[in-house]
Every structure is written in C-alpha cells, then in structure tokens.
Design a protein around this nucleic acid. Structure first.
Lengths: 215, 215
DNA sequence: TGTCCCAAATCTGTATTCAGAATTCATAGT
DNA sequence: ACTATGAATTCTGAATACAGATTTGGGACA
C-alpha cells in the first residue's frame, strides 16, 4: 500500500476548497497568511503556493502589497462562469465516444433518480451532483478539456454554500439530469448537449436570487 | 510616470513565456531552479511561484520530487487545445455586443489585410495574429471568459516556435481573418463564429505536420 | 469633536537556509 | 565486461529570516 506523497500545496489547496464548500470563509475577506498557515500546521511557503494556484483559478484575488482575499461573489460573475462551463461541458460531450455514452446512460439515469432526499445535507447533494457530471464527462477524450473544466468549477465553489436550505429546485435539477440521460440512451447526442446547456442555464437562474446584490 | 510595481512572479512568468516564444526552451526538458533563478537574477521563491502558475496553465508539468519541466508537445494535445480555444472564442464572440462588433469590423479587416509579409520574423507575425484576435474579442462582456482564453492560449505558446519558416499557410490565415471580418461587417454573427471556429480548426491542421510524432 | 499626521505594529513579498529525496558515479562482486 | 550496491552529490520541497510596504492607533491641532 503506497502511502500518499504529494506536494503540500495540493493538499492545502484541497483543504481550502473543502472549507469553502462548508462556507467557512466569507467572500471578500482578506487572508492572513501567518494565521492560516499556523492553523493548517504548515509554513507560509506551501500555503502561498496553494493561494497562487487558487488565484489562478479565480477563487482568490491578489493585490500587490496586500495579499490574497476570497474574490467577492456577484451575479455577473456567476453568470459568466455558468456560460463557460455550459460551453465546455457541452464540448466535452461532443468529444466523447457515442458508444461509451450510450453504455453509461443507464447508470446516469439511475444516479439522477437516486438524487438524495431534500433533507440530506447540502454537502451530500453537491457531491452527488458532481459525481453525476463527472460520470457524464468520463468518456471525454480531450484530457486538457477535463482539466480545464475542473479548474473552472473550482471557481464556482465559492457559490456552493449559498444554496444551503434550498429545496424546491432540487426536483428540477433531478428532472434535467434524467432528461440528459434519456437523450443519451436514445443516442441523440446533439439534443443531450443542448439539454446539458439548459441544465446549466437553469441552474444559474436558480442560484441568482441567492446571490446578494453586489455592493 | 509610475514605475512598474507588481509581483516578481508575474514578470518572471511573462519573461519565461516570451523566451518560450523565441524557442529558447526545448519541450520536455527539465528546469533547474537554481540555475534559472540565478540567470533571471531572482531568488527561487518567486521563480517557483511563476513555475507553479505556468504548471496550472499547462505550460509546465510538475512531478513530486523532481521539479518542473516543459510539458512535451504532441499532436493530440495541440488538437485538444485548438478545440478548446475554438469553442471559447466562439462563445466570446457570441457574448459580444453586435453593434460594437460591426463597429470594429472595418478595423479588423484592415488589420487582416495588413498581415505582415512572409519575410517578416515569426515573432512579428505571431504578435500580429494575437493582436487581431484580441481586438476581435475586445467587446466580449464575459471577463472571466477573456481571462480563461488568455490562460489557455499560454499553454499553446509551446507550439509557437514550431511554425518558424512556414510560408504558404500565411495567406490562408489572412484569408480566414478577412472572411470573419467581412461576416461581422454584414452583421452575421453566427456565420462569423462559425468561420472563427474554422480558422482554429484549419490552423490546427496547418500546425500538425510541424509537430514531431510523440516518441 | 473631528481631522491630519506620524510612529508603531502588522503583514506581505522575497531571500536564504535546512532537510530529505532523487540522481550520479565509483566500486565491488559475479 | 556487466550488474548491483552504496556513498557522494545535486536538487527539490519546505521552513525560516529579512526588508519594505501597508495598516493601525494615538496624539496634536483646528
């Protein structure tokens, strides 16, 4: 059993993202490097490396002389991110092997129907949603594209916790996933890609009201 | 005249990218941090920060314990990158103000026609090409998308120097740019986006033969 | 009371140092 | 001659140290 040995900066990055999911950080707040490094039990060096990576992904902003801070959320930015991910996932679907997609379609349908109960914790729901999208794209042969999608989605994590307590939209999300899966089973790739884009556009609208108006 | 004060890591990143354009680095070669830092006259800290950024953009690879190296080039990866940029630029065009596009269309046409002579240095041609694309997208209201495009294009810089000495394809590139500009003048956005995608697909094919077969 | 200014404290950006992993090179053994 | 082994070297990953920029807080002055 090979023990995990990978750069601290990556572990730190993931820890920060997971804390972001839990809503531990308020958007727009400054990061104190010494404090955070101490809290994480690492030195500033790998922490800063992680922060720089996150800044590159749009999770953080950096200003000369005043360090990093969590980028403020805004409806405009979330719209922009959704547009981007919709286009990228749609492209990924287009670059997937149709045969493979038909093969996993039943599983996608099952996953979509098994959408966690609305009582479930937000964390669980999100993980389930991610799992579904990951499976959907798992047949994409454009590796760079998959990496890029992951990176862009990291930037969306700042918005995740805003959905806590949401209930009604869940059914919509579920229905849309089912629709994509059904279209894939029917082998209609273009329509499936279209439905996927719709899923993102609708998801964007669902989130909109939850995002505080920019100051 | 305010003197430039911004993080070293950014200046280093740009310096490395510009050296990459000049073909100073062979793809696949390891980077010696101390040597490179000394050569640049900086310490390893900001250099490593720049390297990490470049790794995030796909310019470099990093392997635990053995540092960074320029990611090897391959036809597969270049294809992937072109697919991505084609989709992103096409989306950017779609998210631009049609009126603004019609406004800059004449300038785009002029720029395209002024394509540098084939005798010009590769560097000049590339800068001209970039300038054209930048102007084309300058009206895109999705700022995140513009940043993303810049970042993905950084990953393509490893391929730039492979085109040196190419001559014939220049006219094709010029013709394609003109076509996009003309469609924009006519106000036909969908067709222009289509022509832009074609431009990337064709550019990809032009490059293909220049990329050494992966070992 | 409110505002401006300056000193102290805080924090970032960069350099340097340290520890341990990976590589190299020479040598012993077959 | 070739391979395996291990010590020496080189290099990365991480921690610490340092310099200068930014923020904070208090006191002088209106």
């Amino acid at each position: 059993m090979p023990i995990e040995r990978r750069p601290l900066r990556e572990q730190i990055r993931e820890e920060l993202l997971s804390r972001l999911d839990r809503g531990d950080f308020a958007a727009g707040t400054d990061i104190n490097e010494v404090a955070l490094a101490t809290e994480l039990g690492v030195s500033r060096t790998p922490l800063r490396e992680a922060l720089i990576t996150l800044a590159g992904e749009g999770v953080l902003e950096s200003n000369q002389g005043r360090g990093f801070r969590f980028a403020p959320v805004s409806r405009k930015e979330f719209t922009e991110l959704c547009e981007i991910v919709a286009a990228l996932e749609s492209l990924a679907l287009d670059r997937s092997d149709p045969a493979y997609l038909r093969e996993i379609a039943p599983k996608l349908l099952r996953l979509a129907r098994d959408f966690p109960d609305r009582i479930a914790e937000q964390q669980v729901i999100e993980r389930h949603d991610d799992e579904w999208h990951d499976l959907l794209l798992s047949g994409c042969r454009n590796e760079r594209l998959l990496d890029l999608i992951t990176s862009v989605k990291a930037g969306m994590r700042r918005y995740a916790h805003l959905l806590t307590g949401d209930e009604t939209p869940l059914e919509r999300e579920q229905a849309e996933h089912c629709r994509v899966a059904e279209l894939l089973m029917a082998g209609d790739l273009p329509q499936a890609a279209e439905a996927l884009r719709d899923n993102w556009v609708n998801g964007m609208e669902r989130m909109m009201s939850r995002i505080p108006a920019s100051s």
